[in-house]
């Protein structure tokens, strides 16, 4: 192993993600190679949502194994790593604190710089690196985020976002209603494929922002009234995704950028991809989508962004390495991008 390092110079960053249901650790190299990406996901019982304390208990239990495995898979030991990155927010307090505690301890013990990473930016940076996008309008859609953003003057600027639920929450909360375990996006996508009957649901676009609560309330009510489940799933997707496509189109028309990047867990949905591809075509923009295996929360997002931040000399003192439950991505000065 030593040999490889000597021949193969580069910077290595270890990263830990623990904002919500996923506890994941990963090592990336400065050439963009993902040397390891190990994760363990907490699944709440069917029909119920994620409970922060239960999830954090899961994280505490699996942490030693996941950390160890991330090193074994990469064939490195912690001494050979140049920086330690952790997701400092936004996310659920108890979950965030597990990742932060583990990372602080490692940074202290091995005397490595500790790099705080904004999780939304983690999603975006890894997706950019893996797809080769340069200056995209990004639609970030997951359980924790529904944001349309583009980079300008040193920060990711938010062009549009949800006024209430995220699209992930919409899918999960409807899924919970019908007894699926969260996350239920994939199951809903499968059911949606079986129907093409459109049931009208509230389509709510306000300027560049969207609101999903109307869809959720109406769909739940129609389900209780005995409306066909496949058609409901189909209609939820059609309505919610068309709203997202519209606001993405608006950001594209407004910024006149020539790339669209779809990122976040919901990016795996084929129907959403199809719609955004059409939007991109209409505006002569290139379309990129994050590879499925890295679309959900994972350590690689944190390790890669941590590596970029580390290369721009960003780190935090252990005593000041607080987690920030509602850390907006447009509050982060992105020094490594111009």
């Amino acid at each position: 192993m030593k040999n490889r390092l000597e021949i193969d110079k580069g910077i290595f960053c270890w990263g830990c993600e623990s904002t919500a249901h996923t506890f994941s650790c990963s090592i990336l190299k400065s050439d963009g190679r993902i040397l390891s990406d190990v994760k363990s996901i907490y699944t709440p019982p069917p029909g119920s949502g994620i409970h922060p304390r239960e999830a954090s208990r899961h994280h505490i239990e699996v942490a030693p194994k996941v950390v160890k495995q991330s090193l074994i898979q990469a064939g490195l030991n912690m001494k050979e790593v140049d920086a330690i990155a952790f997701s400092a927010g936004p996310g659920l307090g108890p979950c965030l604190r597990v990742g932060a505690t583990v990372s602080r301890a490692l940074a202290l013990y091995y005397d490595k710089p500790l790099v705080p990473v904004n999780h939304a930016i983690g999603h975006i940076e890894l997706a950019i690196m893996l797809t080769g996008a340069k200056d995209p309008v990004v639609l970030l859609v997951s359980g924790g985020h529904t944001i349309i953003t583009a980079f300008s003057r040193g920060r990711w600027r938010v062009f549009g976002e949800t006024l209430d639920l995220t699209v992930g929450q919409l899918l999960d909360q409807f899924g919970r209603e019908i007894g699926f375990s969260s996350p239920s996006g994939q199951r809903i996508e499968e059911l949606a494929k079986k129907s093409s009957k459109y049931i009208s649901l509230p389509y709510t676009v306000k300027g560049n922002d969207v609101s999903f609560s109307g869809i959720l309330t109406t769909a739940k009510k129609l389900f209780k009234e005995g409306k066909d489940l496949d058609s409901l799933c189909f209609s939820i997707q059609e309505t919610a995704f068309a709203m997202l496509a519209e606001v993405t189109e608006r950001a594209l028309a407004f910024t006149e950028k020539k790339e669209v990047l779809l990122a976040g867990g919901v990016a795996a949905n084929k129907r959403l991809q199809e719609m955004l591809m059409e939007v991109s075509k209409r505006h002569d923009a290139k379309f990129f989508v994050v590879p499925k295996e890295y679309s959900g929360d994972c350590g690689a997002q944190i390790a890669w962004t941590g590596l970029l931040a580390h290369s721009a000399n960003i780190s935090v003192d252990i005593e000041k390495s607080f987690v920030k439950q509602s850390w907006r991505l447009d509050k982060v000065d992105v020094k490594w991008r111009d």
Partner: peptide, 12 residues
């Protein structure tokens, strides 16, 4: 109030 509400809605 609106800004507090919508932003960073998290999985509950």
């Amino acid at each position: 109030e609106i800004e507090r509400r919508g932003r960073y809605a998290r999985v509950e």
